[in-house]
Amino acid sequence: MLHQWYLLTKKKEVYIVVLDMPLLDTKRGGDLMGTFILDIVLQILSFVAQNERENIRCRQAQGIAAAKARGVRFGRPEKPVPPEFEDLKEKVKKGEITCAAAARLCHMPRTTFRWKCMHKP
């Protein structure tokens, strides 16, 4: 954010007016003291925003960990495999049928079929 502010105000010489925060008005702060105050306020606001983002991430991670500890599962519920899945899985392993054909017969994408073949006991 600070880098973008610098590019806009110094390199491109753009005036920025923040309507609900007159301290960040670059039109008025043209003198040395005004520029100094503006830079300090911007530094403080950037710090507060970054600190809040980190706090939010931390609280979110704590909430997710607590939910998982309670047994909450995230994401879509897993669809059950059709009864013929195991037979088709064995046929694919033996080379009697292609993975794509087996997936079609199970009414699932090929990638899902392959994933379930690898992760299903």
Results as ranks from 00 to 15, higher is better:
residue 36 F to S: 08
residue 29 G to A: 14
residue 106 C to T: 04
residue 118 M to S: 08
residue 60 Q to D: 11
residue 61 A to T: 06
residue 78 E to I: 13
residue 49 A to V: 09
residue 17 V to K: 07
residue 11 K to I: 10
residue 89 K to E: 09
residue 107 H to R: 13
residue 93 K to Y: 11
residue 57 R to Q: 13
residue 59 R to T: 10
residue 96 E to H: 08
residue 47 F to E: 10
residue 114 R to K: 11
residue 100 A to R: 06
residue 62 Q to Y: 07
residue 51 N to D: 14
residue 50 Q to N: 15
residue 72 V to S: 05
residue 22 P to D: 10
residue 3 H to F: 10
residue 22 P to A: 11
residue 31 D to P: 03
residue 87 D to M: 13
residue 61 A to L: 08
residue 117 C to P: 01
residue 100 A to Y: 02
residue 111 T to P: 00
residue 23 L to Q: 07
residue 61 A to W: 04
residue 38 L to I: 03
residue 28 R to Q: 10
residue 76 R to L: 09
residue 20 D to Y: 08
residue 103 A to I: 01
residue 92 V to D: 02
residue 32 L to N: 08
residue 103 A to N: 01
residue 84 E to C: 10
residue 21 M to D: 13
residue 104 R to A: 09
residue 47 F to R: 08
residue 47 F to P: 01
residue 82 P to Q: 09
residue 52 E to W: 14
residue 110 R to G: 00
residue 22 P to C: 05
residue 1 M to E: 10
residue 108 M to F: 04
residue 63 G to F: 05
residue 62 Q to N: 13
residue 79 K to G: 04
residue 63 G to D: 03
residue 117 C to A: 12
residue 34 G to D: 01
residue 82 P to W: 04
residue 57 R to K: 14
residue 78 E to L: 15
residue 30 G to C: 02
residue 16 I to T: 05
residue 70 R to M: 12
residue 6 Y to M: 07
residue 107 H to V: 07
residue 48 V to Y: 10
residue 58 C to P: 00
residue 19 L to R: 06
residue 117 C to R: 07
residue 55 N to L: 15
residue 11 K to M: 06
residue 95 G to T: 05
residue 112 T to N: 07
residue 121 P to Y: 09
residue 38 L to G: 01
residue 99 C to L: 14
residue 73 R to K: 15
residue 108 M to Y: 02
residue 101 A to E: 10
residue 72 V to H: 08
residue 51 N to W: 15
residue 24 L to K: 03
residue 88 L to N: 01
residue 104 R to C: 03
residue 96 E to K: 09
residue 36 F to D: 02
residue 12 K to Q: 09
residue 54 E to F: 07
residue 8 L to H: 01
residue 95 G to S: 06
residue 67 A to L: 12
residue 96 E to N: 07
residue 5 W to G: 00
residue 4 Q to A: 10
residue 61 A to S: 12
residue 102 A to D: 03
residue 19 L to A: 09
residue 114 R to L: 08
residue 80 P to L: 09
residue 71 G to H: 06
residue 10 K to I: 07
residue 83 P to A: 15
residue 33 M to V: 08
residue 5 W to D: 01
residue 68 K to W: 04
residue 109 P to Y: 02
residue 107 H to I: 03
residue 6 Y to L: 09
residue 79 K to T: 10
residue 25 D to V: 02
residue 44 I to G: 05
residue 111 T to W: 00
residue 23 L to A: 11
residue 112 T to H: 04
residue 80 P to R: 11
residue 116 K to T: 04
residue 54 E to N: 13
residue 74 F to K: 06
residue 76 R to K: 14
residue 109 P to S: 09
residue 21 M to G: 02
residue 82 P to K: 13
residue 73 R to G: 03
residue 103 A to Q: 00
residue 83 P to T: 11
residue 23 L to S: 05
residue 94 K to E: 14
residue 2 L to V: 11
residue 21 M to P: 00
residue 4 Q to R: 11
residue 93 K to R: 15
residue 56 I to V: 15
residue 121 P to G: 12
residue 87 D to I: 13
residue 10 K to F: 06
residue 104 R to N: 08
residue 104 R to D: 09
residue 75 G to C: 08
residue 13 E to W: 02
residue 70 R to K: 14
residue 105 L to T: 04
residue 118 M to F: 06
residue 73 R to Q: 13
residue 74 F to A: 05
residue 41 V to N: 01
residue 72 V to I: 15
residue 12 K to W: 04
residue 75 G to N: 07
residue 62 Q to L: 11
residue 75 G to F: 06
residue 78 E to V: 15
